[in-house]
Simulated scan of single mutants.
Amino acid sequence: MAVVVGFAGTDEGRAALARAEQEASLRGTSLLVVDTGREPTPAAELEAALGSLEVEHQLVPPGPLRDAAEEVITAAEGAELVVIGLRRRSSVGKLILGANATRILLEAPCPVITVKPAAS
């Protein structure tokens, strides 16, 4: 079993990756990194982010349809945990989550942890 993380080259994606690495280390399992950015994450950025990981990991490149939620949910089959990043929202925006986050929370076959980046 692995920990799955939805990663994009954003503050939210980096926060999710850091938390997922902690969870994988605590659980003694590997990390499955799903590239969920709107555009494929540039290779140099991926290498920098993944190169510093201290747990065994595997990258799942973006699928042809770029459906981030579907890719994370599919990768989570048999996983122990999913970690996703959420962006900070306005008061009104807090009433609804993004469509991908909502779908992952509702359809993932295992527990989901959501994280926010540190306030700047």
Rank of each mutant, 00 (worst) to 15 (best):
D67R: 07
E39W: 04
T29Q: 08
E45H: 10
V115K: 08
A8R: 05
G98Y: 07
L65H: 09
D67Q: 09
V115H: 09
P40R: 08
P61L: 03
V34K: 11
E45P: 13
L46I: 12
I84W: 04
E56V: 04
A75C: 10
L50W: 01
G93D: 06
G98H: 07
V112C: 08
A18Q: 14
V34W: 07
V5K: 11
K116H: 15
G37W: 14
A99H: 05
V82Q: 09
A76V: 14
A16S: 09
M1Y: 08
P42E: 06
A108Q: 14
P64H: 05
V60T: 04
D35E: 07
P40H: 06
E70V: 00
E21P: 08
A20K: 10
L50A: 02
Q58C: 09
L105T: 01
L31A: 04
V5F: 09
T114W: 06
S120C: 08
E107N: 03
V33A: 13
E56Q: 11
V83D: 14
V4K: 10
G6L: 08
G37T: 11
A76D: 15
L32Q: 07
G51N: 10
D11I: 12
P111L: 07
E21V: 01
L106W: 02
E77V: 00
A79L: 11
V83A: 10
K94L: 09
L32M: 06
R38F: 05
A15C: 11
E77D: 14
L106D: 00
I113E: 15
Q22S: 08
A16W: 10
L65I: 04
A44T: 14
C110L: 09
P117H: 11
R27C: 05
V3L: 11
V4L: 07
A18K: 14
G13H: 12
L65A: 13
E54K: 10
E21K: 00
A119C: 03
R89W: 02
G63M: 01
L32D: 10
L81Q: 08
A49G: 13
T74G: 00
P62F: 03
V55F: 04
S120E: 15
A68S: 14
P61S: 03
A69R: 04
G93K: 04
A48E: 15
I96P: 00
L31M: 08
Q58R: 12
V83S: 11
V60L: 01
K116Q: 15
P111Y: 06
A75K: 07
A69C: 12
A68D: 05
I73F: 04
L26C: 13
N100E: 15
S30L: 03
V115A: 09
V72R: 00
L50T: 01
T102P: 04
L50S: 03
T36R: 06
L17P: 02
I104H: 07
E39P: 00
S91E: 09
I113V: 12
E107W: 00
E23V: 00
G37S: 12
V72D: 00
S120T: 15
P62L: 02
P109L: 01
I73H: 04
D35Y: 01
G28R: 06
L95W: 02
E77A: 04
P61H: 02
V4H: 13
A15N: 13
A68L: 04
E21S: 08
R88W: 11
A79T: 13
